[in-house]
């Protein structure tokens, strides 16, 4: 049961027929709307997008409270409108969730940079440009974990564990050898194969793509 102060986002999310973190379901719904253009699918896409965007910024604001918490509403609205304006330009409708998450990430990074410059000037009137702040984790945690883990799941069986240990856990070869009973040259060859396949995984690459063709639209 949500606390009374946090019920209204739940009142919107309750209208989703799947979990907000279920990016496969979100992508499938978007593809159906893209193909069929029915109001019912559009509504589900809108609900998912709004809830995703609001949760994304809530998580960032909860983790690192900004000087002005009222920025939250404005950021949510600006991001939602940006997504809505550019929805028709999406190149890969089947990766809608990644596309939305990259727009959220870019909007947040722009906001953090702008805020940093503003407050640097307020606190120190020296005209020196402020150094960039340490980058916050800009991805949506659910999208990032789902995408990386699913990409590893898509590897052939014999590469999965080795890829997880090497790239997600950053284990050394000695540590991997302790988990997997294979000679070192074989493990090296597995890691290379996995690296090559991961670098070609379209879902992973979708998280790196610039979502909006016109930089001005990123506001």
């Amino acid at each position: 049961m949500p606390s009374p102060a946090f019920h209204s986002l739940d009142a919107v999310a309750a209208h989703l027929p799947f979990h907000l973190s279920d990016i496969e379901a979100a992508n499938a719904t978007f593809v159906r709307w893209w193909q069929e253009r029915t109001p019912a699918h559009r509504r589900t896409v809108d609900i998912w997008t709004y809830c995703f965007v609001r949760r994304y910024f809530l998580v960032k604001f909860v983790k690192e409270p900004p000087p002005n918490p009222s920025d939250l509403d404005e950021l949510v609205e600006r991001t939602f409108q940006k997504i809505e304006r550019n929805r028709e330009t999406i190149r890969q409708p089947e990766r809608y969730a990644s596309w939305v998450s990259v727009i959220c990430k870019n909007t947040y990074l722009n906001y953090v940079r702008r805020r940093h410059r503003l407050y640097s000037l307020d606190e120190d009137e020296a005209p020196e440009p402020a150094a960039d702040p340490p980058p916050p984790l800009p991805y949506d945690a659910g999208v990032l974990m789902s995408t990386v883990l699913a990409a590893i799941e898509r590897l052939p069986n014999f590469l999965r564990e080795v890829a997880y240990l090497r790239f997600v856990k950053a284990c050394s070869y000695q540590e991997i050898e302790a988990h997997i009973d294979k000679p070192l040259p074989i493990l090296r060859s597995y890691v290379n194969k996995a690296a090559r396949q991961l670098r070609q995984d379209p879902h992973l690459l979708a998280l790196l793509e610039e979502p909006l063709p016109d930089p001005e639209k990123q506001g």
Binding site: P2, L9, D10, A14, L16, F18, H19, S21, V62, L149
Partner: peptide, 16 residues
């Protein structure tokens, strides 16, 4: 925290 406050009873995706 945020996820706990919404969509009670709906299971998380398998991968997470």
């Amino acid at each position: 925290l945020v996820s706990r406050h919404i969509q009670h009873g709906r299971p998380l995706p398998e991968v997470l």
